[in-house]
Design a protein around this nucleic acid. Structure first.
Lengths: 116, 116
DNA sequence: CAGTATCCCACAGGATACTG
DNA sequence: CAGTATCCTGTGGGATACTG
């Protein structure tokens, strides 16, 4: 007996091996705030301070870190406007927008599950 | 200016507050192996040793732990057959099956993302 | 405003051994 | 077969302070 997955080849993503796409997806959006960040940016472009205003329980460091990782993974674009005071905006790339259906489903399911 | 999320009420799930459904969903399936376990059980009922055979990089302890948490969260049913040697089967509850569309999307997206 | 730089710790997850 | 029981470690994430 074997499952569908057992016949699939392993995936490689950033030098690590994954046995199925789900693991890759979790590696990308599994961070504590990442999915929520993406969900927000899916609604609109935001600058750093706006994200900070929403994620009041998060430190600047964590926000920065998670945003950089999302940028590295190609989901988020970071635009720095060379001015004083600094202005940095974040928005989703095409790749980032491609994950929106998942986020929408996750949001919906989570709301339903919490109600029980 | 505010996003859709900022006008929503917070969700409560297992005595913790969450600002959106996504966070709840991640709290449930965000464990290192949980999503993959659910994905497998969505294909078929499996006994512990079968899961172990697939998750070769996971310890018994971790498998047990994650399965118990999924059981506690109402996604997985654990059936113990009182016999020697013991036999324990796991399968998804209705609630567990309700998350399958998300898993399918995550799997698909992950495969696509890894290819780049 | 939008970040680094340090220092720190809890806890998720792992290794190994034992058991009904 | 399907687990516990112990002990241990890495690192994800936090607190605080400094900066271009």
């Amino acid at each position: 007996m074997q499952t569908n997955l057992e016949v699939k080849k392993t995936l490689v993503f950033r030098d690590k091996e994954y046995k199925c796409g789900i693991e890759v997806t979790l590696a990308v959006i599994g961070g504590k705030w990442k999915a929520a960040i993406l969900y927000h940016l899916a609604q609109q472009t935001m600058r750093f301070s706006e994200l900070q205003r929403y994620f009041t329980n998060t430190t600047r460091k964590m926000l920065t870190q998670q945003l950089r990782e999302l940028e590295r993974d190609g989901l988020v674009h970071r635009e720095v406007y060379p001015q004083v005071p600094p202005k940095v905006e974040y928005w989703l790339t095409d790749e980032g927008r491609s994950i929106k259906p998942i986020l929408d489903l996750m949001c919906e399911w989570g709301v339903g599950h919490a109600e029980k």
